[in-house]
Design a protein around this nucleic acid. Structure first.
Length: 210
DNA sequence: CCCGTGATTTAT
DNA sequence: TAAATCACGGGG
């Protein structure tokens, strides 16, 4: 019984309609839900505590700005509920949850997760982490901890055997304490750099730095 | 504060 | 073809 808090409930997997909303609404709704990764029969999971919305062709900070559509960002044009995993800085992966519908390229960047399952394995995956709150407190950290890479790009979160999001009943924290602020690391995006598109659950130590 | 690291994007 | 960029993280 390494770490086995509460069992993951596959029946509570979020359905398609949950994702088919605008990215700002989805970014808020994802707070307090559980990101689940199944790998080699093991569960790696955590509560989503920080998100950012990226708003399609008009958003200067988005990979789809000005209608850009390439092999790299193709899955952002997929149906709501698709995973968009991109590679950056020569070494990091980041996970997005696609919003809306096919060819409406909005997405939510998962920036931080509070680990609940597979914590020992996460420590193995992340040599640099000293404490539990260093494991998934950043978009690339959580991908490293949860073994998320481009192999999962384009995965359907409503049906994938490898990754999904579980609806949690207990969401009081998210409902009462959502803090809003500017997105991280998008200073190049001019007027879009300051818009309040980052959302996080206030008052616990698991969100990314800033 | 600076730097690694290399795919992707943009300029030439 | 070449140069610049980058939704980051780790170590001082």
């Amino acid at each position: 019984m390494r770490d086995r808090p509460v069992a993951i409930d596959q029946r509570a997997r979020l359905p398609r309609r949950f994702y088919q909303r605008d990215a700002t609404t989805l970014a808020r709704a994802l707070l307090g839900q559980r990101l689940v990764r199944l790998v080699q029969g093991q569960v790696l999971a955590g509560i989503i505590v920080e998100t950012e919305a990226y708003l399609g062709a008009k958003d200067k900070a988005a990979h789809t700005y000005n209608g850009r559509r390439t092999a790299r960002n193709e899955s952002m044009y997929g149906n709501g509920g698709t995973a968009y995993v991109y590679f950056t800085y020569g070494m990091h992966y980041c996970l997005n949850v696609v919003a809306r519908r096919r060819n409406e390229p909005e997405a939510v960047l998962i920036r931080a997760v509070e680990p609940t399952h597979g914590i020992e394995r996460m420590f193995v995956n992340r040599r640099a982490a000293k404490r539990k709150h260093d494991l998934c407190s950043g978009p690339a950290k959580l991908c490293q901890a949860m073994e998320i890479d481009r192999a999962l790009d384009g995965a359907d979160l409503t049906s994938s055997e490898a990754i999904f999001i579980e609806r949690l009943r207990q969401r009081a924290m998210a409902k009462t304490g959502i803090t809003v602020g500017p997105r991280v690391g998008v200073g190049y995006a001019q007027e879009w750099a300051h818009k309040p598109l980052r959302f996080y659950i206030a008052g616990h130590g698991y969100q990314s730095r800033r």
